[in-house]
Simulated scan of single mutants.
Amino acid sequence: MPAPHVETAPGAPCVLIIADMLGRSPFYDHLAALVTGAGFQALLPDVFFRQGPLPKPGAEAAIARRARLDERRSLEDLRAAVDWLRERSTGPSVGTVGFCMGGMFALDLASTQGELVTVAYYGFPEPPAWVVSPPPRPLDLVGSLRRPVLAFWGERDTAVGPESAVRCAERAAANPRFAHAVLPGLGHGPVRGGASGDVMPGVRPRRRIVNIGDTAGESTVDVKWWMDEQIELVGSVWFTAVEGMELAGLLGSGAIDVSVLQPRTWPLDEINDAISGASSGEGGFTSYLVEF
């Protein structure tokens, strides 16, 4: 199974990163970089290597590709990946982190593999009804969990269903090292970016939301909720959250040389004049930093 592997040091603890049904993306590449930056090995397998890449982006194509996936066989592929990592680590456990479909696989592995430490984001305790060849239901296996598991679901996740998440947590209660959280206001897939509309209802009243990119289209905020809760929104639409994280990483590593940019400064009381000049296109790049 093709899988980019990054090793910071021989024998370092290992983390298996299992993507959602859209597959590998800059988000997961960045996550792998964060994991290795913390001193771990990271492995990012492609469970769709037999089906090939998506013919076009989007959920419709992803669902069609997943319909050709034998998910029980994929689970065996992931077991082999865990064993491969275990052979290369001197640590006592292998970590797994999965998202959506990958979260479902991570929960299955946690119930059937020994010596795993698991984090599952909005994983399905019960595979969606439209899945053609599903793996075992984590809901049926979760009672056998004995190793540490941390699971996150969204309160408004209609894909997983809050009731399914609650049943999973109840059945796992016999494991004292199982912890979970149902996050207020969140829908399905809040971690990957582009989720501001899901996240906003989870903000407490009379608070300020600072949105660094993440919204490139029309906003779908419930204006009545916004007014009733006295929420203030401040932000930018230039980068998505994931793109901003990638850019920060490139700048921090020195991969992007910003020495050619010519900094200019304005006093704070002239900040509106500075922003108004952005349309002049001087240099083709404008960034504003406020220093207090």
Rank of each mutant, 00 (worst) to 15 (best):
L261P: 02
E243H: 04
W238L: 11
D198A: 15
G103T: 12
M1L: 14
A120T: 06
R147I: 10
V35W: 03
T90G: 12
P136E: 07
T158V: 04
I275T: 10
R204P: 06
S74A: 14
A38Y: 03
R79D: 08
G194N: 06
A179M: 10
G102T: 01
Y288P: 11
V210L: 14
G235Q: 08
F239T: 11
G123S: 05
L233G: 03
F178W: 05
A38M: 12
V191P: 04
L233E: 11
S196V: 11
Y122H: 03
H30P: 15
A120P: 11
V35S: 02
H5F: 13
N272G: 09
T286M: 12
L16R: 00
F40N: 00
R73W: 07
R192S: 01
P148R: 08
I63T: 08
N272V: 05
L145A: 09
V94L: 01
V166H: 12
Y121A: 12
Q113M: 14
R24K: 12
V119A: 13
D214H: 00
Q262P: 01
W266A: 04
R66V: 03
P92L: 07
S279H: 08
L150G: 08
A64I: 12
V15L: 02
G185N: 10
D222R: 01
D228F: 09
Y122L: 06
E246Y: 10
G193W: 02
V94K: 03
E155I: 03
L250K: 13
V258A: 15
A38H: 03
G235W: 04
V15S: 02
F152A: 12
M227Q: 12
P26V: 09
S89R: 08
D214Q: 03
L85H: 01
R68W: 09
E229I: 02
G103D: 03
D29S: 10
G284R: 07
I63W: 12
L22T: 00
E282P: 05
E163S: 13
E76P: 09
L22K: 01
P92T: 11
Y121T: 13
C14M: 03
A80Q: 05
V119Y: 10
L16T: 00
L54T: 10
L250Q: 14
G91K: 06
L16Y: 06
A278K: 06
V82I: 13
A179N: 14
G189I: 09
A9K: 05
V6Q: 05
G102S: 00
M101R: 07
T36S: 01
R207M: 04
R264Y: 15
N211C: 09
V260N: 07
A81M: 02
G114V: 04
S279W: 12
A67M: 03
V199M: 15
R204S: 13
I256W: 06
T90C: 14
R167V: 01
L43C: 10
